[in-house]
Design a protein around this nucleic acid. Structure first.
Lengths: 239, 239
DNA sequence: TTCCAACTCCCCAATTATGGTGAGGCCCCG
DNA sequence: CGGGGCCTCACCATAATTGGGGAGTTGGAA
């Protein structure tokens, strides 16, 4: 079968997709198009849920979830700290857990080469788009250099599509924090206690409490630490 | 002068840029290349700091900063809640302040059409990449449709460059937390109090305290909330 | 104009977190 | 085989946070 698929066609197909299964199909098509072993789109959810579509074997996928490899995967933590796409070779595999993960992944047919594009959306949404293959370093570098831009674009479109499917993504957005609440959360996040925060904001500690409590309410948080964590992971404050 | 500039050349120039002025130059070149009135890259910092390079008039730029228009600009708030690029016409201009802003912007030569790409980086970094022009709706739609992908890519490269200039963005190598410390931080970040965390981990609350304190020490944090915030923003835990 | 959200201030009592100190067992690496 | 990090447990006293009340001002939106 001749290769007639183009990037344009794939992106157009993505735009027309109206089910999650559509993403799965697009992923398969993409693999053929790019000529790599695997393509994975992986949404790392703030609630610890994960959604992904891709071409990894079901065994590996469930193994990854069961073992909570998310916690030790250098691809996840490495990409979380970076903006630009990353070649797996450039990540930190020094920890034993990480090396064990890699070995096991290769055993599951993941391939020895990988390239992952981090993607971020509103409310601290974070996702990964990965391609990988089994080949030499040189071949892989040539591939990633040649396709870098397309991969960035594809990752972008995948995420856009995935966000459209996300249920209840919009309602939470409405609850923005007021300026004072943001101030309070920010100062708490940098380690100030209530007395220090109140002092920094030149308000009474009593007033501060009102802000903290209303922020907690808006964020659906059970306590201050929770509220700050949510504000952070939703990108409402930055430290 | 013939138009010989290509997207490749601009992106290559961006990659070679090694000063902030370089971004300014690239912005100007880009305007010529795309044939629009203005190009602006705008980094919106949560602390209220803003960095931008672009082709808006200095008057408008300082006016925008002085008046703290960031707080009322529908482009900013609208893009903050979206993942995909946005045409200014699709934003919410219903508030009086927003309409006043738009009128004033047009008076300052900003143009009646705009298209903005939101971009997000690690640690909640948020930036905008905007093109705008003075033309009809039809012409503008044709332009944005034709250049959408390039604009996404350019925005991406601009942000990558800008992040490289950011001081202290590649800070001390985050000291890793032990598995138990990660457990503790994670459970605290999802709102559990110490009793609940200890219960979840099936350890005594006394033991838990040891983890929290050692995590706090490793993270250089002043209190639990601070420690959780740091663990989150360093990507050591994902909530 | 009227309403609402945001900002500001206050008390009391109960609950929770923290600081300081100490100690035993386990496993890995040099 | 010893040092170091990790996991586990405990007490005491103090500091900090939280829950549940109530109340007045202001500025923008319907």
């Amino acid at each position: 079968m001749a290769m007639t698929l183009t990037l344009d066609q794939i992106l157009a197909a993505l735009e027309k997709t109206d089910t999650l299964d559509g993403l799965q199909t697009a992923t398969e098509a993409l693999r053929t198009f790019l000529g790599v072993a695997h393509i994975v789109y992986h949404w790392v959810d703030s609630a610890g849920d994960q959604y992904g579509c891709g071409t990894y074997s079901p065994e590996w996928r469930s193994r990854y979830l069961d073992q909570n490899y998310l916690r030790v995967d250098p691809v996840v933590s490495g990409c979380f700290q970076r903006f630009h796409p990353v070649d797996w070779k450039r990540l930190d595999w020094s920890s034993k857990a990480a090396r064990a993960l890699l070995t096991e992944a290769i055993d599951h047919g993941v391939g020895n080469q990988g390239f992952t594009v981090p993607i971020r959306g509103p409310n601290g949404q974070f996702a990964l788009f990965t391609v990988n293959d089994n080949c030499t370093d040189d071949a892989w570098q040539a591939f990633t250099q040649a396709n870098r831009r397309d991969l960035i674009l594809i990752a972008h479109y995948f995420n856009q599509k995935a966000l459209e499917f996300e249920p209840g993504r919009t309602p939470e957005v409405a609850q923005a924090l007021s300026p004072r609440e943001i101030d309070a959360m920010t100062l708490l996040a940098i380690g100030y206690n209530r007395a220090q925060v109140a002092d920094s904001l030149s308000i009474s500690e009593h007033t501060l409490r009102v802000y903290i409590e209303s922020a907690r309410f808006k964020l659906g948080a059970m306590n201050t630490t929770h509220a700050v964590a949510r504000a952070l992971s939703r990108g409402l404050i930055v430290v």
